[in-house]
Structure formats: C-alpha cells, structure tokens
Amino acid sequence: MRIVIAPDSFKECLAAEQVASAIARGWRRAAPADQITEVPLADGGEGTTVALTEARKGELHEVTVTGPLGQPVTARYGLVNDGETAIVEVAEGSGLHCVPANARDALTASSRGTGELLLAALAHRPKTLIMGLGGSATTDGGAGILQALSARLLDTLGQDIPAGGTGLEQLASVDLKPAIDRLSGVRLVVACDVNNPLLGPNGAAAVFGPQKGANAQQVVQLDANLGHFAGLVQQQGFDIASFPGSGAAGGIGGMVAGILGAQLRPGIELVMETVELESHVKGADLVITAEGAIDAQSAYGKTPAGVAGLASKHGVPVIGLAGKLGAELGELHQLGLTAAFSITPAPMDLQQAYQQAEANLEQSAEQLARLLHGLSGRR
C-alpha cells in the first residue's frame, strides 16, 4: 500500500514532524513493506514557518523578540528562494505556547514580538513575505505589531498606549504611515487558519479570548476595545473588521489585511501548495491526517479539512487521528474525511495525554495498519 501521512502539529505537545514520524513508526511495525511518505503540514498557525521553509529547502534564522507578556523569547523566521521570500508566523513571536497556562493574560498580551520578527525578516529585503496567523496569545488587533513597525498609537495625552487589548481602550489617535512604509514594495501574503470576523459573538474575543485567559467580563471588554480600534482607523479609511478572517490571531488578520494591504489566504491551502501535497496524494491508497483535536471547528480552514478535500478530489480515503475527538464531524465527512479516531486509549488528564501522545500515535497507527491489511487479506 502507498500511505501518505500529512498531519498538523499537536499544539503545545508535538511538532507536525514528530506527529508524522510517530504515525509512520507505528504503521511500519504492522506493515513494513508499505511505501510511506511523510508530509508535515500547518494551517497558518504553529509550525508554518518550519513546514514552508523546509519544503522549499530554505534557511531558518533565530532572533530574540519581546514575548506576549514582555519576556524575551527566541523566534524563528525562514528565507527561501535565495532570500526573495521570507516566512514568519505569529506563533513564533507572540504564541500561546510562550506563556504558561496559569499565567495567560488576554488583556495585556501584546503582538509586539511578531512585529519585531517582521523587522528581522524585512532586513533581508524580501520581495514577498508570507505570514502565518494562528496560535497567538494576543487579542490586541495587531496593535503591538504596528508599534514595533513605528506606527504611533497614542492616548489623549499623546503617549503610547499600554500593551495588549486593554490598551486599545485608551487609543485616541493613530499615525499608521510609518508601519505602512516599512512594507512598501513587499508583497504580503497571510496564511489564515480561521474565518472568524473581528467583532461580535463569533469574533476574536468571544471565540478565542477564553483560551487566552479571558473571563466572560474580559471578553466583553476586549470586544469593545477592538471595536473602538476598528472605528478609529475606519475614520482614516482603513477597514479591519468587515471581512472573513479579520478576527484571526486576536484581530491581527484584520489589521494586516486592512492596514498593511496583505492578501489573506486559507493557510492550509497555501501550505499544501508549497509542499506539493497533491503530487503525493495522487495514486496513494490512503491518507492519514492528524491534529490535537478534530471537531466541528476543524471543518473551517483547519488541516484535516484541507487534507480531506484534496484527497477526496482524487478519490483517496482519509483517516484522521486526534488526541481529542468531537461529536459533530458531519461537515468533515462531507468534505471527504472517511473516518476519525481518538488516539487516547483510556481516560487521562491533559498532562498525561501530552506525555503519552507519541506512544499513543504509534499504537493507533499500528492497530489501524493491522486492521486495514487484515481486511484487504480477506478479500
């Protein structure tokens, strides 16, 4: 059999390369003669820089930037095509994984580190800059990025507003030209992993704020602050709120498209094109995808949906593996997902699941291979 393994990362647990390798090891234990191709993926969130840079045989660079809560973090960016294309991602400079779960603060977390990462990449004078959204710890509408790019976001006293989404409440005036000029002549393409709007019940604060540490009252406050920011920049002719994806990465999606002129693209589509996944899927007998959680939200721009849609185009069955499996998978099945299985063999807490994820992936893949080969042998 020809097997293509095309997973995303298990967030805060395993990189996509580790997930793919674990599945391959398990499968080979049961079916060593099968031809296996590993194609680690990302959907614009964590792992996008590595996936795209390695697929294009580029170079990864490290730089120290300001983390979400002000602490220094080491972030990576990639250069491909002899430096003509740079690749950055929000998760590297302003990622949720940079902040311990008990220290997350959606009100003060800033995207400044992502802006500093952009500056490091822009120093190489690329013609195109690919930016991955997703996995952010922030809900500041990209204000920190703008400040790092020398935009002025000022309060009524003419002082810089504080970091984070809470600072937007004090915003009285903006000068965006310095940030826009920083990207002059650079084509900015943004890989977006969600379609959520900036504001409202399906917006950046309401949907993603709680996982970043916001309680119900803070969600309301952050949504109002983002609305204030959107209204203020709209007075200068910039729309950051009216389109799908504007709520991605705590509102960074709206800012980069509406102010910096970025082209928003579904992240998984951009990644699949770059790694030439379709060429591997053609003629395959089975595709295995995986993500930390596969649920109803996965149908909207996530890796399992993208892989299922592509494989379905070529009539190839797709099996999904996940640490956590949701109950509503109807839309994923319509897209082409044949079946999905949880890798967790028994009830366990989250920390146990993280620690055993690799072993559980191996075991699940081995059992899956035994099942499929056993069934094919009975035909």
Score class of each variant (00 low, 15 high):
residue 151 A to E: 03
residue 276 E to G: 05
residue 20 A to K: 05
residue 346 A to T: 05
residue 212 K to V: 10
residue 79 L to R: 14
residue 129 L to S: 05
residue 355 Q to N: 11
residue 332 L to D: 01
residue 107 L to D: 15
residue 52 L to E: 01
residue 365 A to Q: 04
residue 78 G to M: 10
residue 357 A to Y: 06
residue 140 D to I: 15
residue 278 E to C: 15
residue 124 H to Y: 04
residue 222 L to F: 15
residue 364 S to P: 00
residue 213 G to Q: 10
residue 109 A to K: 12
residue 366 E to P: 01
residue 141 G to N: 13
residue 238 F to D: 04
residue 34 D to E: 07
residue 197 P to T: 15
residue 258 G to Y: 11
residue 266 P to F: 09
residue 354 Y to T: 09
residue 321 L to P: 06
residue 276 E to A: 05
residue 220 V to P: 00
residue 9 S to H: 02
residue 209 G to T: 07
residue 172 A to P: 02
residue 70 G to V: 07
residue 303 T to V: 11
residue 43 D to P: 05
residue 368 L to P: 02
residue 127 K to D: 02
residue 177 K to L: 13
residue 81 N to R: 14
residue 210 P to R: 10
residue 120 A to I: 07
residue 153 L to K: 13
residue 24 A to Y: 00
residue 114 T to Y: 03
residue 368 L to I: 02
residue 306 G to Q: 00
residue 323 G to T: 10
residue 365 A to H: 12
residue 61 H to Y: 10
residue 55 A to R: 04
residue 133 L to M: 03
residue 220 V to T: 12
residue 46 E to H: 14
residue 250 G to L: 00
residue 91 A to Y: 03
residue 352 Q to R: 14
residue 213 G to N: 11
residue 216 A to T: 10
residue 276 E to Y: 01
residue 362 E to Y: 04
residue 273 E to N: 12
residue 102 N to E: 05
residue 254 G to L: 02
residue 121 A to N: 12
residue 182 R to E: 08
residue 32 P to N: 13
residue 227 G to Q: 04
residue 122 L to V: 12
residue 271 V to C: 15
residue 360 N to G: 02
residue 88 V to D: 11
residue 378 R to D: 12
residue 260 L to Y: 07
residue 40 P to N: 03
residue 310 L to K: 08
residue 319 I to A: 10
residue 200 G to V: 03
residue 362 E to N: 07
residue 282 K to M: 08
residue 81 N to E: 07
residue 145 I to A: 10
residue 188 L to Y: 08
residue 364 S to C: 11
residue 326 G to L: 08
residue 206 A to Y: 08
residue 245 G to H: 06
residue 39 V to Y: 00
residue 293 A to R: 05
residue 201 P to M: 08
residue 223 D to K: 07
residue 271 V to Q: 14
residue 250 G to Q: 02
residue 325 L to I: 15
residue 241 A to V: 06
residue 92 E to Y: 09
residue 257 A to R: 11
residue 360 N to I: 09
residue 23 I to M: 01
residue 287 V to E: 01
residue 239 D to E: 14
residue 242 S to Q: 11
residue 113 G to E: 09
residue 342 S to G: 13
residue 211 Q to D: 02
residue 224 A to D: 14
residue 209 G to D: 07
residue 2 R to Y: 00
residue 215 N to F: 10
residue 304 P to W: 09
residue 238 F to S: 01
residue 197 P to D: 03
residue 287 V to G: 01
residue 6 A to W: 06
residue 55 A to H: 11
residue 239 D to F: 13
residue 100 P to H: 06
residue 66 T to D: 09
residue 182 R to A: 05
residue 314 H to E: 08
